[in-house]
Design a protein around this nucleic acid. Sequence first.
DNA 1: GTCTATAGGCTGATAGAC
DNA 2: GTCTATCAGCCTATAGAC
Lengths: 198, 198
Amino acid sequence: MPRTESQNQELREQRSEEILNAALGVFSRRGMVATKISDIASEANLSHGLVYHYFKSKEEIFTLLVKRAAESSGQIIEKAHLQDGSAIEKIKWMTEQILHSLTDGNHILLFLIMIQASTSDAVPEEVKQFLTSEEFKSPISCLIPLILEGQQCNEIIGENPIKLAVSYYSFIQGFAINKLQWSQCPVPEADLIIKIFR
Amino acid sequence: MPRTESQNQELREQRSEEILNAALGVFSRRGMVATKISDIASEANLSHGLVYHYFKSKEEIFTLLVKRAAESSGQIIEKAHLQDGSAIEKIKWMTEQILHSLTDGNHILLFLIMIQASTSDAVPEEVKQFLTSEEFKSPISCLIPLILEGQQCNEIIGENPIKLAVSYYSFIQGFAINKLQWSQCPVPEADLIIKIFR
DNA sequence: GTCTATAGGCTGATAGAC
DNA sequence: GTCTATCAGCCTATAGAC
């Protein structure tokens, strides 16, 4: 009995996700250029030919993952703004979310893709354009309104807000990297990081 | 008039450094796998053939740079231990040195090579071995004695020293990455970072 | 020492069978 | 939808001329 159209659709969707997941794993370990299509294929347990049935190229897969990562990081910041409480409580909440997402699941891999995308020159042109486009809101620029809010009620020290935002994200990004190298490393509490704002 | 032996020696040394410097620049921008020998050659203004006259392979160049980077980071920590003052003053001094070295010169490139070497799977076997060998002292483990010293005289909070060290290096590494992406970004003061210890 | 030419291997991408 | 076979291009590394 042949598959129905909707079953076919579902299969396509599922395979596609399998490939993307496999790619995420390999990309985050080896970087875009160093991963071969055959690496992705064998991680996903299918032939390299099939990868091309679902995606146009290796670059397309990478670009897609970068956009997902950007979206996922954007969502956390958005949620933080909607949170109850003072500015610093919002930042603390966000920090807890991030640290938690780095600790379990493969959110950390999306994080690393993002770091690779923004630190390496050897990425698809489309990724470069995306990262400099209006569409992409950098985490640093999204954090600044929150910092200003905290400074107005003297919750946060009167330091250059950009400097504070850079420091905060340095911390987060650096920790993601450390965590990848040493997955069992102790995770700092959000309060430890928040200290830089006081 | 032919060159004397010592002039030849000097030329070799000089060319060798030129190539290493060029390689450092390209590696840090594109990563090891994505840089071609011809990239290094043209950055150094010489033919690709000549690169092979000085080095056995691309991997050899990368490995050499990783070892230099490790040495240079080890030296800073060593100097910090020899510094006068309390533990936290030593850490502050070290932080200032690091921030300064990230700000000018191409020390930051060595830093990034180190990050690449320790985060990517796609590095020469010799690099992997080196990073797990006794020869290589990880910055985190080198910082711990200093933290313990500070905790004994209540200069530093009684938090898990490993956690503190991880947090500190997360910050430093993350900042190096940010600085590379955005070279004009404001540089936090050492005191801002040191807050996590109090 | 330095260059150009080229061999050899690998990999991204496609074609075509099932 | 999935696989295997294969092509075409690129890149490392070497050989040999100057």
